[in-house]
Structures are given as structure tokens and as C-alpha cells.
Design a protein around this nucleic acid. Structure first.
Lengths: 195, 195
DNA sequence: CGACTCCTATGACCGCCGTCATAGGATGGC
DNA sequence: GCCATCCTATGACGGCGGTCATAGGAGTCG
């Protein structure tokens, strides 16, 4: 994950811990330890305190998810909406089967924990969802989905994925994820066919 | 909400606070205060501590969601899968437009906050999802959805709803919810038509 | 009246957390 | 050598949280 400076490591570690334990249960000391960064660097790099760190972690996650889209497309021999969604789902089923159900989506965690209490974090989460929805919608457009539906379908895909993630984690079973992919594929592919 | 004994009020209050602030940010003292119950009653009724209280709140939420399904069906002149989903979504859009985006789903909150740290709560969340999926699946069966698809479609509906809830809260906009309803309805209704 | 059970009340303990304050290196330019 | 800047290090503080311990009503039944 590109061993950059301690600052980036801390943001990355924060995202990892948040997606596992939630925002409130993730301590600053814990982030520093996980990043193998000095505790004193926290207040140096993040004078805005935990709020700033969390917001940057959320933003990082949004960018990461958005960037993944291009990689998924590259992996598909023939890009289809259903194929893209299947890849998005597969990223998670792979992780869960390989490493267990330890973590969910950090943006979801931040939303659940901070939506009501911390305005700036809620806004960061909204921005992260936007940074994710945008590339997905553009990809759908490239596949022939009419412009007026690209954003709606992208939102649907991400909604379904996020919800299935929750259920999969609760059940410790990828069932909800594979079901989501299977059931949604026909609808998505139908939207790409010119009518 | 049926002014029952203090015990039930505390469970109900816990669910309300959890869905607003998450599990970790909800204090026991806060629950007692919200329920207008004496603090000492907490350890009396919930000797298992916070874990027990949270688990009961999650279970309560699951039962509540499951029971709602019958009410939604009763409200529909002609029951259809899409109509049921629209009602499920409408419950949330109504709340958000009436009372603001203060709360999400308590089961989602518990999953995000406790899935990795507290096994019993994760199991309670899985049970809550099951208590919700069951009635939905049975309703779909009654509408003519083939048995082998009822559970899958019910899971899809709840996945999509949960994810859209997250996005709606982050954006403070019901857009994701209405989109989910609109885009999923054709797929759901198609499954009810005998082929 | 006494005893017993159920519930309430309150204060104390200990641990964790975010933050602040302060000082100690390190590095690079001059 | 010296200074400025950037980063690191560490201890302390105040607050809050869950839990425990202990005791105080409040009925009820014998």
C-alpha cells in the first residue's frame, strides 16, 4: 500500500480501524500504534483532532472506491453493468472468504456513527459516496446506459452493495452479497441495451 | 408506544439512541435518562450489562421491522412486491421528511459497531435481519413469487433499503431511497408474475 | 411486627480517551 | 556555529463510561 510518509499511513490506518470497529471505538493512540507512527505526530499532522483524521480517512476511502472502478472495468473482457457490479461484489466476497468478516465499509461506519453528531464527517461521507457514484455512473454511460439513468443506477448499485455488506457481516456469510449480484445483474444489463 | 414498564422503555430508548448515535456513543446513563427510568434499574433488569441491553434493543428492532410488514400489506389495495417495497421505503422517507435525518436503522448501527468486537451482538443483528427477512419472504410467496426466489428477493430488498438509508442519511436527502424504490419495483413485480 | 422480595438510589472505582503543554531531537540553510 | 523549521516524545489533565457495592424504600405475606 505504498509505504508513504507517516501522515498517509495514519490516514490509512484510521480507515482500517474505523471500518472494523466504528469511529467511536477507534482511539487516536490506536491509530498511531497501528500506523507505527509516533503519537506526537497526530497533533502535528491533524491539528483538527480526531474529527479531521476521520474525515480524511473517509475521503480516502471514497477516492479509493472510485479509483477501483477503472480497475474493475479493465478486468472485464466485455464491460457490462452486471459485470461491473459483480466485480464490485467480488472484491468483498474475496476479502471475506480470504480474511474473514472483520471489516465493513468505512464510509458506512462513519455515517452510522457521526451522521447526527458531527456535521463535517457526515459531509465527508456524502462526498465519499459521490466520489464513488461518479465513476460508476460514467462507466454505465460508456456501456450504453442512457444518461438520465446512469446516476440512479449507480446509486442503486452502491445502495445494494452497502446493505448486503451489512447483512453479510452480521451473518458472517457472503450469501447476501452473492444474492445481490445475481438478482441485480439482469436489471442492470437490461438498462444497457438500447431500447 | 405503549407506556409499559420501565424495562421495556429502556430497551426502546436504547434502540432509539443507538440508531441515532451508534452503539459506542450511547451511554447507559443516557439510556436511563431518555427512558425516564432510574439508573439503578439498569443493573437490575440487565445484569448482563450494556451488551445485554444492546442485544435486546437489536432484537426489538428486528421484531418491529418484521411486524411492520403485515401492516404494510394491509395498507395495499392490491399487494405487489413493488408495492410492499415502496411502503417499506416510504416509512423512512416519511420519517426523514417529517423529523429530519437523525436516525438510521439500529440493526445496521449495531452491526457496524459490534460485528467484530462483540459476538453476541453480531448474532443478535443476524437474528434481527432474519426476523425481518422472514415475513417479507412469506409476503412475496403470497404474491405469487416462486418459493425458491422469495428469500433471495427479500434479502435484496432489505439490502437495498439499508444501503439507501445510509446514503440518504449521509446526503440528508431522500433521493437514494426514492431511487431504490423506483428502480427496483419493475424487477420485483416481474418476479411475481407467473412465467 | 417481621421477613422477604422487588426495585430504586447513589457514590465510588478504574480505565480509556481526546487534548494540551512542554520539551527534546533532527535537518538544512547560512 | 547557529538558528529556524519540522517532526517526535512524553507526561498530565479533565471528562466520561461501564460496572460494582451498598444501602434505602415499598410493598406483600405470614
Amino acid at each position: 500500500m505504498s509505504e508513504r510518509g507517516p501522515r498517509e499511513r495514519m490516514v490509512f490506518s484510521a480507515a482500517q480501524l474505523i471500518r472494523r470497529d466504528g469511529v467511536a471505538s477507534t482511539g487516536m493512540r490506536e491509530v498511531a500504534a497501528h500506523a507505527e507512527a509516533p503519537r506526537g505526530s497526530l497533533q502535528h499532522y491533524f491539528p483538527g483532532g480526531k474529527e479531521q483524521l476521520v474525515n480524511e480517512a473517509v475521503a480516502w476511502a471514497g477516492r479509493y472506491a472510485g479509483n477501483r472502478v477503472a480497475r474493475f472495468l479493465a478486468a472485464l473482457p466485455e464491460p457490462t453493468p452486471g459485470g461491473l457490479f459483480a466485480e464490485m461484489v467480488r472484491q468483498w466476497t474475496d476479502e471475506y472468504e480470504r480474511a474473514g468478516f472483520g471489516g465493513g465499509c468505512p464510509v458506512a461506519a462513519a455515517t452510522v456513527d457521526c451522521a447526527e453528531s458531527t456535521t463535517s464527517t457526515r459531509e465527508a461521507a456524502a462526498a465519499a459516496f459521490a466520489a464513488w457514484t461518479g465513476p460508476v455512473a460514467r462507466a454505465l454511460a460508456d456501456m450504453g446506459v442512457p444518461e438520465e439513468r446512469t446516476t440512479d443506477l449507480a446509486t442503486l448499485m452502491i445502495s445494494t452493495l452497502e446493505g448486503a455488506l451489512l447483512i453479510a457481516r452480521a451473518e458472517q456469510d457472503v450469501r447476501a452479497l452473492t444474492t445481490a449480484s445475481r438478482e441485480l445483474t439482469p436489471l442492470l444489463d437490461a438498462a444497457a441495451r438500447p431500447r
